[in-house]
């Protein structure tokens, strides 16, 4: 018997549940890549690929477009730069006028290092928060964590899950589509 195959613990089900999606397991990155291309071409929208490590080319295979996180970074950076400039102008050139080293009360030159640091700081805040926001994180619970099979995602298995909320989802059709991609195992995950 294959020692890595997980066995289902005997836990009694407490409540009646509805399906979250269909989980298909693959053994190699190549398998899951080809399967992802088929799912992409079939026109599904609410689905994802899960793997223990990044698989090169998966973005294209899934038809994912460039992430929108860059916009959060950009506007974070703009906000940081503006904050730095206006903060120093307010403090040194307006609220408490102070001559330092014979320099003008306000000059973008000496405000620049601080503005530059704040550009980087706010841009990284924008990136992090934008990423969390777009990923709908933090999230304390995910239905897939209930699946005993899904344990392999942190080890050596690859998964595709098509969620029931997908407009093209139908219990039988979707199962047939996934079966045609040659998965190692197929199961319905409950919410």
């Amino acid at each position: 018997m294959n020692p890595t195959t997980p066995t289902e613990p005997r836990v009694p089900k407490l409540t009646a549940t509805r399906p979250f999606g269909i989980l298909a397991e693959y053994l190699t990155p190549a398998d899951v890549m080809h399967a992802a291309e088929k799912i992409r071409d079939a026109g599904f929208t609410r689905w994802d690929v899960y793997s223990p490590y990044p698989v090169h080319g998966m973005d294209d295979a899934m038809g994912l477009k460039n992430s929108k996180v860059g916009w959060f970074s950009f506007f974070g950076g703009v906000a940081g730069f503006t904050t730095g400039m206006s903060m120093i102008f307010y403090m040194n050139g307006w609220d408490y006028k102070l001559i330092v080293g014979g320099k003008p009360l306000f000059s973008p030159l000496y405000a620049f290092p601080v503005s530059y640091e704040l550009t980087i700081l706010f841009a990284s805040f924008g990136s992090l928060l934008g990423m969390l926001f777009l990923n709908r994180l933090p999230r304390l619970y995910h239905p897939l964590l209930k699946s005993w099979r899904f344990k392999g995602v942190t080890h050596d298995k690859f998964y595709i899950v098509i969620e029931t909320t997908d407009p093209k989802y139908s219990e039988t059709q979707t199962r047939a589509t996934l079966e045609s991609t040659g998965p190692n195992h197929l199961e319905v995950v409950e919410d």
Binding site: M33, H56, G57, D60, A61
Partner: peptide, 8 residues
């Protein structure tokens, strides 16, 4: 633009 397929 699949990177793993070589387009001729």
């Amino acid at each position: 633009m699949a990177s793993h397929t070589t387009k001729v």
